[in-house]
Simulated assay, not measured.
Amino acid sequence: MQIIRYAELKPRPWRNGGGVTREVARFPEAGGQGAADGSWDWRVSIAEMSKAGDFSAFPGMDRVLTVVEGELLLLSVDGAEHPLEKYRPFRFSGDAAAAGALPTGEVRDLNVITRRGAFKGYTSIIELSKKRAHPVFDGQLGILLQGTAAVTPGAADGIAAGAEPRTLDRYDAVVGSDSASPEILGRGFLAVVSIDPAAD
């Protein structure tokens, strides 16, 4: 079972000075953490936006952006304004000219970027339960957005793993698996990021 600890991710300042990004995961991993040259086919990151400004373009990519902290991001995509409220994923083209304004102050957002024609990314926000565990499958990341939670390995080949639960801190990510799907219990909100191969 793999947990990506948010506290261990290195912040990368934006070129325009408007914020920082922490890369959670990418595929393929070659090229070094934080590279924005499009050498990867998908990337999941968490960004802190402290002032209004333009977003970097990602030609040939699709993006799903979700505000996870703060009240409102006013996103402009090719001149059209989209008010993005907390926990409401929004999909747009990485080719588009995009910029963000902060009418209610700083925000933190979850970004899923996938190469068009190769992968498609999805973000779902779910409310956790202390009674019913939420599994995280292969091709998924479970990211704790708010509250308290713990994760245990699921059963493998019908045999319970028997491992002690591991506590998750805010924005920690659990890497999914089909052979022993990690299971998350708690109270709060979880982002489930799914990266699916594009249909032929």
Rank of each mutant, 00 (worst) to 15 (best):
M1D: 02
A7T: 11
P11I: 03
W14F: 13
R15G: 07
T21R: 11
R22N: 12
R26D: 01
R26C: 14
R26A: 13
P28Y: 11
G31N: 06
G32P: 06
G32V: 06
Q33T: 14
S45P: 05
A47M: 12
A47R: 13
E48C: 09
F55C: 13
S56G: 12
M61Q: 12
M61C: 06
M61K: 10
R63T: 05
V64G: 08
L75I: 03
L75T: 05
R88M: 11
F90Q: 05
D95L: 06
A96Q: 11
G100M: 09
G100H: 10
P103F: 11
T104N: 15
T104Q: 15
T104I: 07
N111D: 10
I113S: 10
R115T: 04
R116F: 00
G121Q: 04
S124W: 00
S124A: 13
K130C: 03
R132A: 12
A133H: 07
H134G: 00
V136D: 03
L141N: 03
G142Q: 08
A156T: 07
A160T: 02
R166F: 00
T167H: 01
R170F: 00
Y171Q: 01
A173Y: 05
V174F: 03
S181I: 01
G188K: 08
G188R: 09
L190N: 04
A191T: 08
V192T: 11
V193W: 03
I195P: 05
P197A: 06
A199V: 07
D200E: 12
